[in-house]
Amino acid sequence: MENRINSVSPISDLEIRLQDTMCVNESQLQHKWYHNLKYMVVGILFGITFIKAEIVSWFRIQEMFRFQSFHMYGVIGTAVVVGMISVWLIKRFNIKTIYGEPIVFYNKTFNKGQIYGGLIFGLGWAITGACPGPLFAQIGTGALAIIVTLLSAIAGTWVYGFFREKLPH
């Protein structure tokens, strides 16, 4: 259980953002908004892949959890191997960002939330057939009813944030 929030010394914005997340961004570069469009282009390619490989298919997720198909294991396994090799290459050759900044990695510390939260997410994943990324993609396919599911996921995140201090970590 972390009590840092209630302590007298104010905690920094970065510290709050670092709670329970994998991704923070502390670049000192100031960019115009349109510099973010390059992430949208990556998102578009990612979204196309999601659909064309049926990663966001509710049916493929059901097969995965019933061990009826190798497809999703193949996708996730290949992604992890490609990701690992990429990260190794970035570290090995000290590759910089396109702006010349060194690439920074954060180590994750263990807390029990990864087990409790992980189990809760897993239960939901099998119901919706979607983790958060595919929820957005399913809406993009025209399945507009999934907007309800996404709003409920946002509500779930908010409720977690509200009760965070009382939950075991």
């Binding site: 939260g117 809760i120 939901g124 779930g156």
Partner: peptide, 9 residues
């Protein structure tokens, strides 16, 4: 959806 949002965070 609620389980996904609560659990992931």
């Amino acid at each position: 959806g609620f389980l996904v949002g609560f659990g992931t965070r």
